[in-house]
Design a protein around this nucleic acid. Structure first.
Lengths: 158, 158
DNA sequence: TGCAATTCAATTGCGCGCAATATAATTAGA
DNA sequence: TCTAATTATATTGCGCGCAATTGAATTGCA
């Protein structure tokens, strides 16, 4: 378990990895907030924009796979970014089920406005580059393990 | 910043610590879900119960401080747990502004039903005990740094 | 003592995050 | 070819998470 104590011990919030993760994730979101507010973005919207700056023209499905989100989350979020004039949603001609997300000029320009955020956030972590990279890699492995464990137990039970 | 690349490089989602954290936190919540469903708890509700199992009779304020949540989140959540018969909310006689949260017998009994979850989650992480403890401590430090940075910049700007 | 400032909890409003469902387009198979 | 299954996206409903506001109780200070 995530409780690193002996079997039978009382679980303590402060001992739980999941709670440390929960708190750190929220802390990140709160730390980003005042930096993203001038850009008119929420933190999840910022992650979507980062994904689009990296690869423009993705269909919703691919964006969802990159971000780990489904259409129930992305559809309304993308609608808000479209309303804000940052992107366009266009039905693919080849397959009309797909909607491709394309940045507008305004959406592309936002990248340079956001460029200053990353160094500010790095300094807010109080960590060095290798420390950040190491933590990131550990968290990616942890996530992969949790997902795999979920898949395995789902497979067992039908 | 959290991007460990050279200055001026394109930010990539997969390089960002904040995104790894975001994904791992969601993965934890998803992994807990099938284990908590039989108990009728959501993941945040489970964290509240863990806090109450550890220390019963806390006022809402103290619970919020322990969990990093405010009354806007806790009030409705606690109301649901009360409806489920797991806890009671009682106005403190000494200070009628405070509401103390006390577990019911059913709420206390749920602890033993939940006892099996922790070892299952530990194995789902695919990590050893020291690895889990180390990651937890790093995340707690990271959170503290992010909170401090936020406090500092808030103090600067009034 | 009396009144302003503070504190605690609840409420409102909005944006995720996700399960479940709906709808439309495409593919696969009899 | 005609239909059943699958796929992509959107919608609905509910529970967080948080800012802003409200209302009531308490504290502090003149």
């Amino acid at each position: 378990m995530e409780n690193s104590g002996t079997t039978g011990e009382q679980i303590r919030l402060q001992q739980m990895l999941c709670f440390a993760l929960y708190g750190a994730a929220h802390a990140f979101s709160r730390a980003y907030k005042p930096r993203l507010e001038p850009l008119g973005l929420t933190y999840p919207q910022y992650l979507v924009m980062v994904s689009l700056w990296e690869k423009d023209g993705q269909p919703v499905k691919a964006l969802g796979a990159a971000l780990g989100l489904d259409s129930g989350t992305l559809s309304p979020l993308l609608k808000r970014l479209e309303q804000a004039g940052l992107l366009a949603r266009t039905r693919a001609k080849a397959d009309e089920r797909q909607v491709h997300i394309t940045l507008t000029e305004k959406g592309r320009q936002l990248q340079s406005e956001a460029a200053g955020i990353t160094p500010l956030m790095l300094s807010a972590t109080g960590c060095g580059l290798e420390e950040v990279a190491d933590l990131r890699d550990r968290l990616q492995d942890l996530k992969d393990n949790l997902v795999r464990a979920g898949d395995a137990s789902a497979a067992e039970h039908g």
